[in-house]
């Protein structure tokens, strides 16, 4: 079995905090179904190491839970560029929570962005410690899977944001 090491698929989340676990949940499922399609990585702690881990990768896909307060649970966001994420003003990070937006901002500042990046976010609703992922969020997996497979076949270069309901 030859794993395609040019592609890195990263799931981010905390498995013990309800819908925050979605990134881990989705990437574990993807890894099980498409083992040799890419390298898979699950992260629940310090994200600053992504700046090193995605070096030399052709394509990087990040799957994470999202919290917009405007869409309902299970809504899928798809970003093909940093621009919208980088427009956020607030920066909060710590040893443990150098978050996705901060990593991308730092990457853009020092020129360490991956060449092709896809960020997929799924709106969550329940962030309680010790809780399971909501069913409404789990069902978004099939859309996430479709986006990942489509992206790997045809790297988009547009900077438009697409949403799927």
């Amino acid at each position: 079995m030859n794993v395609n090491s040019n592609i890195l698929i990263i799931g981010i989340g905390n498995e013990w905090c309800g819908d925050d676990a979605f990134g881990i949940y989705a990437v574990k499922k993807l890894q099980k179904k498409y083992t040799d399609l890419a390298q898979f990585l699950m992260i629940s702690g310090d994200l600053s190491q992504l700046l090193s881990l995605w070096e030399h990768k052709e394509k990087v896909i990040i799957v994470d839970a999202a919290h917009s307060l405007t869409n309902s649970a299970g809504h899928v966001y798809e970003f093909d560029s940093y621009h919208e994420l980088l427009s956020h003003e607030s920066v909060f990070y710590s040893s443990h929570s150098f978050g996705v937006a901060e990593v991308l901002r730092m990457a853009a500042t020092i020129g360490r962005e991956p060449r092709f990046l896809k960020l997929i976010g799924v709106e969550g609703s329940n962030w309680q410690k010790g809780q399971q992922i909501s069913e409404a969020v789990k069902v978004a997996f099939s859309r996430v899977e479709r986006i990942v497979l489509h992206y790997l076949q045809d790297v988009p270069t547009s900077t438009t944001r697409k949403t799927y309901q």
Binding site: S48, V91, Y93, S95, F98, E102, R105, M106, T109, I110
Partner: peptide
């Protein structure tokens, strides 16, 4: 992580390491 990303920005008067990286990219690298 702590010295460069969390603490040094205090001593240099930056709000965070990302702002610091614009002027001190070499140290962040």
């Amino acid at each position: 992580l702590h010295t460069f990303m969390l603490h040094v920005p205090d001593f240099l008067g930056y709000p965070d390491a990302i702002a610091m990286a614009k002027d001190h990219k070499d140290w962040v690298e």
